[in-house]
Design a protein around this nucleic acid. Sequence first.
DNA 1: ACAAAGATACTGAACGTTCAGTATGTCTCC
DNA 2: GGAGACATACTGAACGTTCAGTATCTTTGT
Lengths: 200, 200
Amino acid sequence: MAAAIDCFARLGYQGTSIERIARAAGVTKGAVYYHFRDKEDLLFSAVKDRIGGFEKQVLEAVTVAGDAQAALRRVVDACFLHATVSNHRRFIITLMIEALDTNPRLSAEFQRILRRMRAFLADLVRRGQGQGTMRTDIDPEMAAALIAGAIIGAEVQHYQDRTEIDLRATLDATLEALAAWLAPGGATHGIAASGGAKTW
Amino acid sequence: MAAAIDCFARLGYQGTSIERIARAAGVTKGAVYYHFRDKEDLLFSAVKDRIGGFEKQVLEAVTVAGDAQAALRRVVDACFLHATVSNHRRFIITLMIEALDTNPRLSAEFQRILRRMRAFLADLVRRGQGQGTMRTDIDPEMAAALIAGAIIGAEVQHYQDRTEIDLRATLDATLEALAAWLAPGGATHGIAASGGAKTW
DNA sequence: ACAAAGATACTGAACGTTCAGTATGTCTCC
DNA sequence: GGAGACATACTGAACGTTCAGTATCTTTGT
């Protein structure tokens, strides 16, 4: 299944043949079909088993903390980790885009994953707003979409151009930019931020 | 070729059969092979002819202006336009990701496209810094990567979840966030919602 | 003015290959 | 010796590609 995830992440679902996965795993096609009903079963098993596990790990590793800004940093760190040591993040992005109009069921699965991610990030922003460390005139849902988008955008560019886009540096800069935007005191219109503002 | 771009953008290169393109164009497979040497030729022609045209149009539409912030807004607007009225933006993103490990030549082409885009955005930031409307302690190249990433991330999420991610609103919020980050003197200014030029 | 000659745009039917899926054989360990 | 864990050989369908043939325009010679 690790071989499958790697192949799917790099070549896409349609670009990966069962035989290729089998060879990468050091077995033959028959072995694959012994463990999985068909190609789609292998795909979904990979998504639920590994990607679901990764997602859980990321979210759980963060809910412990108190400071919203620090938690945001840890989310980004977790994404960086799973984008570099394994191919889990690229798997999600690649398959997500490929599945859009070709596999409605898988696409719905990824929709749920991204929604959970955004809901989690929105909660994080709400927490920051409650703590007074984040602007209150920003919609948490929208902030979550921007944070998720910034991470995804950084990853996509990194996968496409590893020599020009250093993922670690780009994600750090992304965090900095998000912090500057989310920091209280920069309200454009509406409610002024509450006190205790501090950059970190 | 319009039919090919639409199919490629939605189903990917490997997910699109020549016959599907032909049917979408109201002809048969033979007609496609009369105009294009092979499937890859069709793909590259589509990239160079249409996507290159879009890119040119975006860059030209912006170089006229003086205000860097307004120019940034127009870049985003152009991306929005080509993401909604045609499928050009989705074509780029979909094919870019699919090509990474499956079509080195195409991947190099997209690498050049993204690099041009970032170089252009970096120049834009440099202009803003020269005008005193943007912070000078930010690396223009890095800012360009973040801007491009934010746009790409917004688009990806929109394609994946059109009901939750409104592209126009998300891009507007992205602009606002970028403006808050890029604004000189810490966080004092945002960008006014939609509307004409603004003094900074 | 008009027909012969050729270019252009396309059709429909093949062909070769790839690949998901299946059926059956083989080995190993309890 | 039988069941689990594979390997091997094969099938059917889809797909990229080629090609002979056809219809419609365009040019040219008389």
